[in-house]
């Protein structure tokens, strides 16, 4: 009971402090937020927006399927990674908001290489 009250008190205090910090954001920051919002709203005026959003899911599935085939089979048709790594990568790729990651495959290849290198050094 006391724990519950303490938890509620903590949440209320945390919320009050957070809200206070939000209210005290400086004018320069607010201006940048305002500019960012208007830049985002300009997306509504872009021609072809509807066409892209209509085909994006299908395109994304095709792209993920291609990447999956490459990752699992490798260029020479061999298995190049274990199941756990493949599953986590697919989950990440399948997130609707992360389709942009397909454009960063080179970076994520580097990331994997770095992880493997680090593991090798430790072992």
């Amino acid at each position: 009971m006391t724990d519950t009250r303490n938890d509620e008190q903590l949440q209320e205090q945390a919320k009050a402090l957070f809200d206070n910090s939000v209210e005290e954001l400086d004018a320069a920051t607010l201006s940048r937020l305002n500019q960012g919002r208007h830049r985002a709203l300009e997306e509504l005026q872009r021609p072809g927006l509807v066409t892209w959003s209509r085909w994006a899911p299908a395109g994304g599935v095709v792209a993920v399927a291609v990447v999956a085939a490459v990752l699992i089979n490798g260029p020479g048709g061999e298995v190049t990674m274990n199941g756990a790594v493949a599953t986590s990568d697919f989950e990440m790729l399948l997130e609707a908001d992360s389709l942009e990651m397909l454009e960063d495959l080179e970076f994520y290849s580097l990331l994997d290489a770095v992880d493997e290198e680090a593991d090798g050094n430790v072992g």
Binding site: T29, R32, L33, G36, R37, R39, A40, L41, E43, L44, R46, L49, W52, S53, A56, A96, D97
Partner: peptide
């Protein structure tokens, strides 16, 4: 803060582009 501003703007753009 600068990185946070960039991420928030990016999120706003993606929301408008994909989920408006």
């Amino acid at each position: 803060r600068d990185e946070a501003l960039d991420l928030v703007q990016e999120a706003m753009i993606k929301l408008v582009r994909n989920y408006s």
